[in-house]
Every structure is written in C-alpha cells, then in structure tokens.
Design a protein around this nucleic acid. Structure first.
Lengths: 186, 186
DNA sequence: TCGTTGTTGAAACAGTCGTACCATATACTC
DNA sequence: GAGTATATGGTACGACTGTTTCAACAACGA
C-alpha cells in the first residue's frame, strides 16, 4: 500500500554525483552547487543519502567500482615481455581519460592522511592491486607470495603519475618508466 | 616619525603558523582557530599578511624553506655504494619526524591538481631535487644531463612514501626499496 | 474517497567563513 | 604637550555551510 519507492532515482543521482566529483574534486564539494548541477535539490540529496558524509562515501565507493571495472576490461593481456606489460599498464593509467580518477585518487589519499578516521579501508585501496599485479609479473617475482615486486612496480607507477600530473612532462616520465622496465628485465 | 614598525612580529607569526599548518594540514585551515592557537587574532593575521591566500602562500614558502634546510643538513654524505645512499635517503625521508612535511607535500600536490592556478610553480617542487640527486647518483646515470635517473629514483621514493603513509607497512616498503637498490646496482 | 507511504519544495536555523570598518591604544619625533 | 605612524580589539557584514522543519503533493491499495 502507499506510493511505491523509486530506488532508481538514488542510483541515477549517485551516478551523476560521481561524474560531478570526478570533474570537480572532493575538496570544495558543497550540496547546493552539486544539487543544482544534478537538477535536484539539497533536500533530495539528504533524503536519498542521509548526510553529506554518507553521500561522499557512496560516491567514492562508486568511483572505485568504476575504476575496478575499467581495469578489468583492460588488463587481460598477459602476453608479451615484462616491458610490454609494464608499458601497457603505464600507458593505460597515465592516459588523459584516466586523469579524473587519478586526481581523485591523490585527493583521497591526501585527505586520508589528515583525517584517517574517515577512511578505515585506505590500506586496501593500495594493496588490492597486488593479486592482479602479482599474477601479471609472476615471472619477475621471487615466489608466489612475493609482495615486494608488486609493491615496487606500483610505487614506480604511482610515483611517476605524481610527477606527470605535477609537471606534465610526458617525455621524461615515459623514459623513466622505460628505464625501470629495462632494470626489471635483468 | 611615528611608532616604529615591528617586522619581527610577522616573522614570529609566520613561524608558528607554519608549525600549525604542518600539524593540522592545509585543507580545513581557518583564520579564527589558527589565530587562537597562535595567541593572536584574525585581525592581526590579515594585518600582517593581507589575505588568507597570501598567508597560505607565505606558510608554504616557509615550509619549503625549512625542508630545503633540513635536506641540506642531511644530504652531504656522497660516500658509499648506490644502495647505501639510496637507503640513506629513504630512511631519512620516511622517518616519523618527516611525516608532517610529507603529509603537507601530498596535500599541496592534490590541491594543485584541482586548482592549478594557485600553484604556478608546482613543477619546480618536483624537479628542483634533480640537481642534488643527479649529483648523488652520477655513477648510475647515463650522462651529466641525465634526468631519467633522478626521475625514476624520486618516483620510487615518492611512490613508496605514498604506500607507507597509506598502509603503514614499514617492512614491505623497506624491502621494496632494497629491491630497487639491487636493480639499480646492476 | 480515504488512508498510507513515498517524494518534493520553500524556508529557516545555527553555525562558520574571510574580510571590512571604526575606534582606540601604543610608541615614537618634535 | 602635539603630531603621527603602527598596532590592536571589537564588531558586524554578507555569503556560505550542512541540516531541519513544515507543508504539500503524488501514487498506490482498499
């Protein structure tokens, strides 16, 4: 009895809110401008998500879900040399289309350093790449439980992403990755 | 004639404000709490710095100045193997005492990605390590103008710092750096 | 039609923000 | 003392924040 609930509205809003956050960042996020960009009202955002904090949590979960999907779509190729695979990962993650994700990634990390209490699973966001990467670089690992190789590979990727996003120097960062690939081969 | 100006007050305030920002981060910085912690008033902060934006700029400049001094005090030892030098840099930069600097570093970078217009010299903060590092790792460089080696070394350090600050896993990150040092030696 | 449940708008609340204005106090020269 | 420049307190403004409150409307079953 009574009017039927419309769960699709929340999903629609969540999707568009995630777009908005990816485009504008988390830092200055405010309900009123967000609502206006989404053709809704702060009233409805709170109605659907309870509070701003819960909305942000939902948006971050959605962003991570999207990232995982995109990654799964891309990673399959396990063929080729170590260099080719490494270059493939770098080319993908450093492409302009990934820039909003990368930006949000860095923003969340930085905010997590100041307010760790808001990000109870910050560590997982780092280490959950390891299963995937460990498999992709099994031939240069020291063993099946080797976490050091994925750690180093991801550190290089993240460090170069940091450099690239700050300096915009594509040529230099590309060459540094090539250099690392050569070192790894030996 | 008239009351003499007291430039020392501004300097004192700047020093304490920098301490405060290093302790509390840039994100939620607000004049009133800052002033209270510094035993002054928002009125005086604006009197000395003109605006919040200029205050922040002054604080960031001061923080960078301090970091450069600390680095200069530490780096001199150019002796030892590549591994020893690399481990020395890592041990120093990843020490707990450097945590506030590292945190602010990541925070500024993330904010710079969202508001590039506020950080006209973001790139320099990355590349001005190169002269120092290029000299320190000359023996593994391909030439005197090699920017690839410093780029890769700093990427590893920053990437592992990212990992360490997010996961707190000292053991794994230390071992990853050792692994990189071995690769670099060959 | 009525009761019930979900949805939505408008407005207000209590708070914080950076900043400006106005008066006053302080420390100096003459 | 007067004159003058710096230093400071107090206060208020206008714009914003997340959130709440109250009312109305919409869609359904009985």
């Amino acid at each position: 009895m009574g009017r039927p609930a419309d769960p699709a509205r929340r999903e629609r809003t969540l999707a568009r809110a995630t777009d908005y956050v990816l485009a504008h960042g988390l830092g200055g996020l405010s309900l009123r401008p967000l609502a206006e960009a989404l053709d809704t009202s702060p009233r409805m955002l709170l109605y659907d998500f309870g509070s701003k904090q819960e909305l942000v949590a939902a948006v971050l979960a959605e962003a991570r879900r999207r990232g995982a999907v995109r990654l799964a779509e891309h990673l399959p190729p396990k063929t080729g040399s170590v260099q080719e695979r490494l270059r493939g990962i770098w080319a993908w993650i450093s492409a302009d289309e990934r820039a909003p994700f990368v930006r949000l990634f860095f923003e969340v990390h930085a905010d997590g350093l100041v307010h760790p209490e808001n990000y109870p699973d910050q560590g997982e966001a780092i280490t959950d790449w390891f299963d995937t990467l460990g498999a992709a670089f099994r031939d240069v690992s020291t063993g099946p439980d080797d976490t050091v190789t994925p750690t180093l590979v991801m550190a290089v990727v993240r460090g170069l992403l940091f450099d690239l996003t700050a300096t915009g120097d594509r040529h230099r960062t590309d060459r540094a990755l090539d250099r690392f690939a050569e070192l790894l081969k030996q």
